[in-house]
Design a protein around this nucleic acid. Structure first.
Length: 305
DNA sequence: TAGGCCATCTGGTCCT
DNA sequence: AGGACCAGATGGCCTA
């Protein structure tokens, strides 16, 4: 009903605008270029209104489809809450970071430490979203946010510079306030790492303990975990391992704003994991079709478009 | 009250 | 001609 009223109102406004246009035409003004506008007869006006209403309906449907797609994206990024929805822009940013982070896990073949992972996830996100992600992980943002510096670039740093997870383009005293109030969203542990039965998480154990065993704030139950423990991520990892076996020098190109072969970025910089270098390899011959395809896809992601 | 986010309308452009 | 897509404008709602 609300939509219909909006539509009727807009049509009424249409009539007003058309009427004023006719008025304009009747006045002595410099001749307009382009095709001469036909006079709005009653029939033409009616057709115009119908066409406009149909176009509006199509546009509404189109936007609803877009929103539906965004909603399904919300459900597969790490932090999903029915009660505290991520905004559109934050959803896209988080999704981009998440893809980046998972790609990096695939590439390095080892689990990053939690802090680095969360830092990558939160890069470029607003403070409330960062808090939400922290809430999902039951972390205090203070514990993983590096020292804030204003006016940092929002794009990736140039070749040779340390990239993720060094920069957060916002600064807020609110970070010192700790977590937002419940309800938080959910972070499936399987969103982050492939769990092998009986495997020790090492340094990550406290994280899994806190997520899996906590009786802290009430979380929304997970809806549809995108990466089940034995699911997609597992097969991705196996595939990556197979490719790595095929050629130990396998890697993908990462270009930070014109970075050449010398360009690289230190990732997962952590004493426990050591630094993983992302090498920028140009024109690598001997790649299989699969590898070239994968490189292309990864490059598309890392170009930070 | 300002600012962020959102839905909707609208006209322009491109494509079929 | 009509549909898809896009970006600008506008107004409503919510929160700090």
């Amino acid at each position: 009903e609300e939509r219909i009223s909006i539509m009727t109102r807009s049509v009424r406004e249409d009539q007003v605008s058309v009427a004023s246009e006719e008025q304009q035409e009747s006045e002595n003004k410099p001749k307009r270029r382009g095709p001469k506008k036909k006079k709005m007869t009653k029939a033409r006006l009616q057709r115009f209104k119908v066409r406009r209403m149909k176009a509006n309906a199509r546009e509404r449907n189109r936007m609803h489809g877009l929103n539906d797609a965004l909603e399904s994206l919300r459900k597969v990024v790490p932090c999903y809450s029915k009660t505290q929805k991520l905004s559109k822009i934050e959803t896209l940013r988080l999704a981009k970071n998440y893809i980046w982070a998972l790609s990096e896990v695939l590439r390095s073949g080892k689990a990053p430490d939690l802090m680095s992972f969360v830092q990558v996830l939160c890069k470029g996100l607003s403070q409330p979203t960062t808090n939400l992600v922290a809430g999902c992980l039951q972390l205090n943002p203070r514990t993983f946010l590096p020292e804030q510096t204003p006016d940092l670039p929002t794009h990736l740093p140039p070749a040779g510079a340390v990239a993720y997870p060094a920069h957060f383009p916002f600064q807020s005293p609110g970070l010192t306030a700790g977590l937002p109030s419940p309800p938080y969203g959910t972070m499936e542990p399987s969103h982050i790492f492939h769990q092998v039965k009986g495997q020790s998480y090492g340094a990550l154990e406290p994280f899994f303990d806190s997520v899996l065993l906590s009786d802290g704030p009430a979380f929304d139950p997970p809806l549809s975990p995108p990466l089940s423990i034995n699911g997609n991520f597992s097969s991705f990892k196996q595939e990556a391992a197979a490719v790595a076996d095929y050629d130990k020098s396998f890697s993908f190109s990462v270009h930070y704003g014109g970075g050449g072969p010398a360009g690289h970025a230190a990732l997962w910089s952590n004493p426990r994991c050591g630094d993983v270098q992302v090498e920028a390899l140009m024109g690598y011959d001997g790649q299989s079709h699969h590898e070239r395809l994968m490189n292309a896809q990864l490059n598309a992601i890392f170009h930070d478009s």
